[in-house]
């Protein structure tokens, strides 16, 4: 098991390198002149040329890539924003925790509500509870986040004056953004839980559990849900990854200085350094998230645990 984790951690190095190369290359082909953006439209040709030279934009692609990779991965020098001159490392250290916190709160709300909804739908298949849950899921997946965010602000901040409308501070500042951003997660969680529970509750071992005299809720939760968790965890993992990179809309509306906002501003300003380093961090965070998913699989299912223990080889399962 420890070997498996170590292996996965080592795998993150090539992943981070790959992302770095990819993002760097993409930014290279991106139209727009950073020097022009930094200096504004009034800058003279000489000033622009000097700025380009200073930023190293005149060097060949391969040299720039090499410099970037060695700075980032060997010297751990994450550089400065070209626009503000602020240290990227400090900015990320400040912003990443906010995005992480927001995503984690969203994840907890999403699946804290989504899983019970899905279980209720599956247990009452084709009854009104099922229809209600699936209608809620449909609404959840269709609601635009920014619209819901504005409605929540109007209700809770403007009318009721209960919660802050924007900015950062204590945990109360995260409630509205998390609520606004979690509808997709609730919907995805509910739908996935429903379909995997529908498979599971028709299994023979569920009948066995009933025949043993196990109370119905224990049959559903202990014997059913635990077996149905694997696909739910998968959805949770990918969803968490999406939240990490995709909270940009929510961060913008609620003026939360997080990673999403940082990278988008970087893209708009052709702030190459910010975009590149930010993306690498998100990729690493996503990798950790996927590792957590795989470890959760193992925690839930002893068959997967056994496979990891055998060195992670995927054996074809005999029927």
């Amino acid at each position: 098991m420890a070997r498996y984790v170590l292996k996965r951690l080592l795998w993150m190095i090539p992943i981070a390198l790959g992302v770095a190369v990819l993002v760097f290359t993409l930014m290279c082909f991106c139209p727009g002149d950073p020097a022009e953006i930094i200096l504004g439209s009034t800058a003279t040709q000489e000033n622009l040329a000097a700025k380009r030279e200073e930023l190293g934009l005149n060097d060949p692609y391969i040299i720039r890539l090499g410099t970037f990779l060695s700075d980032t991965f060997i010297h751990f020098d994450l550089g400065e924003s070209w626009i503000t001159g602020a240290s990227v490392k400090e900015a990320i250290a400040e912003r990443l925790p906010r995005t992480l916190l927001l995503s984690i709160i969203q994840l907890i709300i999403s699946f804290g509500i989504g899983i019970p909804l899905g279980v209720m739908a599956a247990v009452n298949q084709n009854k009104w509870q099922d229809n209600l849950c699936m209608a809620l899921a449909l609404i959840g997946i269709s609601i635009p986040n920014f619209w819901l965010a504005l409605l929540l602000v109007i209700l809770f901040s403007v009318k009721l004056n209960l919660l802050p409308a924007m900015g950062i501070g204590g945990i109360e500042y995260y409630i509205l953004p998390a609520l606004a951003g979690c509808t997709n997660g609730i919907a995805a969680g509910a739908r996935q839980t429903r379909s995997s529970m529908l498979d599971v509750i028709r299994s023979d071992y569920i009948t066995t559990a009933r025949a043993k005299g196990v109370p119905e809720w224990q049959v559903i939760v202990k014997h059913g849900l635990k077996n149905g968790l694997i696909p739910i965890i998968t959805v949770m993992g990918t969803h968490f990854g999406k939240m990490l990179g995709g909270t940009m809309v929510i961060e913008t509306i609620f003026a939360i200085p997080g990673m999403g906002q940082y990278i988008i501003n970087g893209v708009n300003n052709r702030d190459y350094q910010v975009v590149q380093v930010g993306s690498i961090f998100l990729a690493i965070a996503f990798s950790f998230c996927m590792l957590a998913v795989d470890l959760l699989y193992a925690a839930v299912d002893p068959r997967i645990r056994a496979r990891y223990a055998k060195g992670g080889k995927r054996r074809a399962k005999k029927a």
């Binding site: 023979d204 071992y205 014997h223 077996n227």
Partner: peptide
């Protein structure tokens, strides 16, 4: 069917 009658995660 003993193959499916037992809970695989217990």
């Amino acid at each position: 069917d003993p193959m499916t009658a037992l809970n695989p995660v217990q």
